[in-house]
Computed example of a mutant assay.
Amino acid sequence: MTADDRINGEFEVPPELSDRRLDQAVAELMPEHSRSRIQGWIKDGDLTVNGKVKKPRDKVMLGDRILVSAEPEVQVTWEAESIDLDIVYEDEHLLVINKPAGLVVHPAAGHAAGTLVNALLNYAPEVDKLPRAGIVHRLDKDTSGIMVVARSLVAHTSLVDQLQTRTMGREYDAVIVGTITGGGIVDQPIGRHPNQRKKMAVVRDGKPAVTHYRLVERFPAHTLVRCKLESGRTHQIRVHMSHIRHPLVGDPVYGGRMRLPQGCTPELKEALRKFQRQALHARQLTLVHPETDEEMTWEVPLPQDIQELLAALRAHAKALESL
């Protein structure tokens, strides 16, 4: 790596940042970088104040000289692949896509290729210079719907901040087992399952997680609900709905064995049996544009498989009404 490849900066603390924490002051001076990355530079000695290594919480004073010389975050090498993307919106900072069910977001063991990251590297090669190829939030492989990808460092920092401060709005549609009479809130911490490490669960020492849900359409033994997240824990909606004994239809991890409703028609039985993924779709995304500060909202329709499932549920309801 040459000197030109490093992240370099030289600043003199202005009056408005005097008596602020070092990491806070640098975050103001270098807003394109996240606070956690800046803290890492400080701890590694890549950021000094008046030639001395400090701690992130140390205060800076008017006229202090801050020097930064840090290596960019090391990226794993992933291959670009020509994979079709359903692009909802794009500009130089953002890429909003409608992810189909079945598409893995990040390369990992067992999924080294054919992922969203591979597709992004082909469509927008600039994301190779960003942490996690610009992906700031993810959808499970078998969850469909809308997600945003950063195309610039400024956008990445802004989107991460919006997620952390819970100002990014995300709504999901889900088909759950059982009927409810109205909406509610699940406020339960989520962490690793104590015995099954590949699963998440509601656990006492988990991270705070809040899911709001409301009734959209009720069927004889199922309900279409709309969920809004306050937090973004792994498998959050799936875990929370299962916790209140209304797991998602088709969920292979948290759904338990398939339950057929009383008086189930052959058509509904077939629809439920062939639905082999969690019935979960990210329908709407709201955020503040990192460059213009404009609030923007996008919405994508339900995919074909969930529409067919809902059609079968409606037909079953009509069949029962005619008895």
Rank of each mutant, 00 (worst) to 15 (best):
R218L: 08
R257P: 03
T234H: 13
T223I: 03
R233T: 02
H235L: 07
G184F: 12
V239A: 03
P247I: 00
V253Y: 06
M241Q: 05
H246M: 06
A209H: 05
R245F: 13
C227T: 03
D173K: 08
K207P: 11
Y254N: 04
G169M: 04
P194H: 12
H235I: 02
Y172S: 04
R226C: 12
H240E: 07
R192N: 12
R259H: 13
V225L: 08
P189Y: 10
V202Y: 11
V253K: 13
H246P: 03
L224P: 00
G255L: 04
G169R: 04
R257L: 10
P252E: 06
P261C: 10
V202N: 10
G256S: 10
H235T: 02
P266A: 12
R218W: 09
P208I: 04
R204D: 14
R257Q: 14
P261L: 07
C227H: 01
G255K: 05
I244Y: 06
K199F: 12
P208D: 13
K228N: 06
D251T: 00
P220E: 09
I244R: 01
T265H: 12
Q196E: 15
T265V: 08
K207G: 09
I185T: 15
G255W: 02
V202T: 07
T223C: 14
L229F: 05
R197L: 14
D187H: 07
V249L: 09
T223G: 05
E217S: 09
V177R: 08
M241C: 02
A221M: 02
V186H: 10
G182I: 04
P247G: 02
P252M: 03
T181H: 12
D205R: 14
G255E: 04
P261Q: 08
R233Q: 09
R214I: 02
E217W: 09
V210C: 11
H235C: 05
R257T: 12
G250F: 00
A201E: 10
T211P: 09
H235W: 06
T211F: 12
C227A: 12
D173C: 05
M168L: 15
